[in-house]
Design a protein around this nucleic acid. Sequence first.
DNA 1: TTGTAGGCGTTATCAG
DNA 2: CTGATAACGCCTACAA
Lengths: 333, 333
Amino acid sequence: MSIATVSRVLNGSDKVSEATRKKVLDVMEQNGYTPNAFARGLGLNTMRTVGILCADSSDIYLARVIYLLERELWKNSYASMLCCTGYQLEEKENYLQLLLSRNVDALILAGSQFIEDNDEDNAYLYEAAKKVPVFLLNGVLAGSGAYSVVCDDALAVKEMTDELIGLGSSHPIFLCRSLSYSGKTKLSGFCRSLAGHSLPKEGRFFLCPAGIPETAGFLRDLEAQGVTFDACLATDDELAAGAVKYALSKGKRIPEDFQVTGYNNSLLSVCSTPEITTADNRVEFLCTTAVSLLMQVLEGRDVPERTMYSANLIRRATTRRRDEGDLPVEPSK
Amino acid sequence: MSIATVSRVLNGSDKVSEATRKKVLDVMEQNGYTPNAFARGLGLNTMRTVGILCADSSDIYLARVIYLLERELWKNSYASMLCCTGYQLEEKENYLQLLLSRNVDALILAGSQFIEDNDEDNAYLYEAAKKVPVFLLNGVLAGSGAYSVVCDDALAVKEMTDELIGLGSSHPIFLCRSLSYSGKTKLSGFCRSLAGHSLPKEGRFFLCPAGIPETAGFLRDLEAQGVTFDACLATDDELAAGAVKYALSKGKRIPEDFQVTGYNNSLLSVCSTPEITTADNRVEFLCTTAVSLLMQVLEGRDVPERTMYSANLIRRATTRRRDEGDLPVEPSK
DNA sequence: TTGTAGGCGTTATCAG
DNA sequence: CTGATAACGCCTACAA
């Protein structure tokens, strides 16, 4: 019963007789032996760990992404190292360095906050991608070497805008929290729709501070400043909830006087009253796909560097109805 | 410039001349050298990593806990290994084993789902606590060896119940998702209040399925079954939001006909209309305290095994007012 | 099928 | 202050 034999048992080698295997396992059990992970890592050059980066895991959407990623990785016997970077570029770089210095097997960047406008600022991502597989969720890196899985947000927003306009809105506005990759993508969908309806896009989109009451206040200010709007397309459900609060506070009827759409089909969309029409961007699909692709990459297989899928429109009470045949839909949470 | 010197530079030893230190750093820079974390771990017997266990990181409350813990640990240069165990005992044990087998420096169990009724089922926690410091957030282990930081939920719920009754409710009910440690604690506060007002507690508390529409449906069923209630104390804001939906669907006026309180002061409490009266259990305080204590334990210092703090009542629109002097309060998110 | 021995990349303990 | 050198605990040819 040498050290080597123990190692073989540990690694499930088939070159061990059933008898000794059992004996080894017994002894391990009795002595409460746990192999040293570091030494193991040294030898195998991996600890089966992937680093997950996100700006803020307390965001209701990202929280769900994190959860699903972790569960999926665990199924493949990978552990997850979570890093909440915040929104500062420098912090993101620091965290990424940390992860790399810990020899993670791969990186998953959750959320579109990781793509900077200035491509130079993405250099560290390119560098990282040379060392380990890097997966971007809802973000695309130009030259790449990294993999990305993205939802076709532009299309979804375009369709939503088309629908709002079709339902009678003549002055829709677009509200987003920041012009991140996803913010810009969604905005492009909004603009495409406006263009298709020969509506001007100038002065129709706004950056809005975070928070539900803040958003409501922001819209009240907008109205006070003389901006006309009869519908609001928000880039997430929280903003949309704020828009709903705005309408309620001004005595506007939803959806008769004012229509609202959110994004993500989160709990907030059904917590709000009236319940919010939103886009379900299928987080579950996003996460299982990403992890599945990642596993393939780690096995050395070739996978497409970019996969895109589309969102589903969930019609609820903040938009008008053309017909009444629809069934109620559950939030994705 | 031997290997030993490099090591010393890496570990910031003071026994290196400034000249050679600089030279080493230069060479490291040029060759893009990154020390091997596993070998490092082998030598130091730590990788400065703590394992965070939670049942479901997509829960709006736990998500915030996770976020705050990670940030706080990172400030102390510890990385976080996240494990979402779900609610099955077996999975919890598996995850805990995984973490232990990876030689984490400590464990943090976030949420009260980790304390089982049958103390035998907590054996694995006691075992774990013998190997590394174990911190329980919102949960207490009887004999211990583990540390716990808990909010005095019983008191908070008692006060809320007292207040509802004082404001005219004669038939309050208590709604919770499960009889976890925290569920039971809150329930005890509820019962204490009822007893204080000579109200019977029999048939006044209920286990309610998850989900906002489900909760609303549950209350409608309850009413249909002939249960009388004019106020609902929910153990979290999601349940409370469901209760609000119930009242709206039945045309009850809030708070005149029906009062509601939530718990956690989460985004849901202000997303709902009307906004929900809730208890702020100060997650931030919880997390910073826990990590700070953990750091002390890791430094070998003695810290109390149990620290308790109290929640703040946040009065909003789902409960009646005695006086009107209060100021609006922001959610803790 | 099993045991032996070298190597993995650091840290830490000694001498110099 | 610096340089050998023995751990650290496991993995993996290679030998038996």
